[in-house]
Structures are given as structure tokens and as C-alpha cells.
């Protein structure tokens, strides 16, 4: 509870959250139509937003980490858990029409079906907690490699990864713009 009364932390949470919510809205990914059309390959807005965020964010965080101003917070690589979870997530995203973050933001822009889905997410969270003991013992232990990064397993350094990623992204962006202008 002490965190709650530390003004910096609560204020930061609200400010960064608000900026994130506003950016999601301005990027139009709070629209169910935009998200559905990404998976139908008719609108590449979602990928454009995500790839740009990953590259700009990643290069900055890399410099911050090198300068000891930030620490990496990499999620565990439990191959089976991540792959299975992501597979279920992709299906859920198409049926819901949002991801958890854009769904929350969409509620605030007037989407009632996003709110219904958010209640479903609470139910999903409860189901997961109830099945957690079994999941932890049987799924999260398969292919558990811990907190590893692509540079660790490939021997290719972070700057080279980002250079390559930027190149791929630029080619993809040019292609996507041509597709949409046809």
C-alpha cells in the first residue's frame, strides 16, 4: 500500500497510462474495425504501430540499458506456455476484436461490446488462476529457458538486430503503403 501513497508512482502510472491510451486512440487501434482488418490483411495499421513502437522504443531502451539507466525486464521463455498461450490469444483477439489494452481504451471511447469483453477477461483471469497449479506443473516447465534475448541465442548483437529489423520494417512499410493506395 505504501506504493499507493508514494505520489510519484501513482501519478506516473496515471500519466504514462493516459499517454498510452491516447496514443492507442490516435493510432486508431482502439477501433475494432482496424484490428479485424489487420487479421484480414486489408489494413496494416496495427503492424505499423507495433513495429514502429518496437524499433523506436527498442533502440532507446538499448541505449538506456547500456548507460545503466534502465534494466531489461525480459519475460520467461517457457516455450510450450508461450506458444500455447499466444495461439489461444490470437484466436481470442479475433473473436473479441480487441487486445486487452486496446479493449480497455475502446471502452473509454464508447465501445459497449469492448466492455462486455473486458468482463469476459475477468472471467478468463479467474479461470487461469484456478487452473494455475496444474498449468505450472505441466505446461510452464516444458522448454523453460528463462529470461533470454535474441542476441543471447544468436550471437548477433542488439544494434545489428535493430538495424536488420529497421530494414525489414521499411521494406514492409513501403509495400503496405502501396497495397493500401491501390
Amino acid at each position: 500500500m505504501s506504493d499507493f501513497f508514494a505520489p510519484g508512482s501513482a501519478v506516473l502510472a496515471l500519466l504514462i497510462g493516459a499517454a498510452f491510451g491516447a496514443l492507442l486512440h490516435r493510432g486508431r487501434v482502439t477501433s475494432c474495425n482496424v484490428i479485424q482488418n489487420q487479421f484480414r490483411l486489408k489494413d496494416y495499421t496495427v503492424l505499423k504501430v507495433m513495429l514502429t513502437a518496437i524499433i523506436i522504443g527498442g533502440v532507446g531502451v538499448m541505449f538506456l540499458a547500456d548507460a545503466n539507466l534502465a534494466k531489461y525486464a525480459v519475460k520467461d521463455t517457457n516455450l510450450l506456455g508461450v506458444a500455447l498461450g499466444a495461439a489461444i490469444f490470437g484466436v481470442g483477439m479475433v473473436i473479441y476484436g480487441y487486445c486487452p489494452g486496446t479493449g480497455l481504451a475502446a471502452i473509454a471511447t464508447g465501445s459497449v461490446h469492448a466492455l462486455v469483453g473486458a468482463l469476459g477477461m475477468i472471467a478468463g483471469g479467474i479461470l487461469f488462476a484456478l487452473s494455475f497449479d496444474w498449468v505450472k506443473a505441466n505446461i510452464l516447465t516444458v522448454g523453460a529457458y528463462g529470461k533470454i534475448r535474441l542476441p543471447d541465442i544468436t550471437g548477433i548483437s542488439s544494434p545489428v538486430w535493430f538495424a536488420g529489423l529497421t530494414l525489414v520494417a521499411i521494406v514492409f512499410f513501403v509495400w503496405a503503403e502501396r497495397q493500401q493506395n491501390r
Binding site: 498510452f20 522504443g57 508461450v82 490469444f89 473473436i95 487486445c99 472471467a123 478468463g124 483471469g125
Partner: peptide, 26 residues
């Protein structure tokens, strides 16, 4: 959709924000 997207997110350890953006950029 909400039920299963959340189950999937918790099983994977994150969603499009935590995994997709924050994890992707790392």
C-alpha cells in the same frame, strides 16, 4: 473472446502490450 484472450495472455505471460511491445523492443 475476452475469456480466452485473457487465459491465453496469462498462460503466455503477457499480451500485445507486455509481450508484443515491451518484450518485442527488448
Amino acid at each position: 473472446g475476452g475469456v480466452i484472450i485473457m487465459y491465453g495472455a496469462r498462460l503466455a505471460g503477457g499480451c500485445t502490450s507486455g509481450h508484443g511491445i515491451s518484450g518485442g523492443l527488448q
